[in-house]
């Protein structure tokens, strides 16, 4: 059959793109300095507000290519990098040295907010 692809396009990705775009509209709407401060105070806090909870859910579920890691540096600090991919070393995305894990987690959070705001598809 001529119309049968060897490696099919996964149409599921189209549905996810639509879902994520709708989610981003909501998240941009609720994003505020207060919400960012809520996360900075304690990135692990259980009793977070619903907007922050939903924002973190969105961030945690991003594809690996859109995630970040903290790289442990020889001096004991942490820097934000991309997630390594097969055959590719991680790329440092921010020269900031974070003194501890929690401040690094917040740094990743801010980086993901930047990515969220720069998304052009909704």
């Amino acid at each position: 059959m001529d119309d049968m692809p060897i490696i099919p396009h996964d149409s599921d990705t189209d549905v996810r793109a639509y879902f994520d775009a709708k989610t981003r509209i909501y998240l941009r709407h609720v994003l505020s300095d207060a919400l960012i401060e809520e996360h900075r105070r304690n990135p692990h806090a259980q009793h977070r507000s619903e907007p922050l909870g939903r924002l973190l859910f969105y961030f945690k579920n991003l594809p690996i290519e859109e995630q970040y890691a903290l790289r442990r540096m020889p001096g004991g600090s942490y820097r934000i990098t991309t997630i390594p991919r097969p055959g590719q070393a991680p790329v440092e995305v921010d020269p900031t040295d974070y003194p501890d894990e929690l401040s690094g987690f917040h740094g990743v959070f801010l980086r993901k907010i930047k990515d969220l705001m720069e998304k052009s598809d909704g």
């Binding site: 594809p63 890691a69 903290l70 690094g104």
Partner: peptide, 13 residues
């Protein structure tokens, strides 16, 4: 991909 949803935090590599 499932690891960050499970652990709730970015990896420290």
């Amino acid at each position: 991909q499932i690891v960050q949803p499970m652990t709730g935090q970015p990896p420290i590599i």
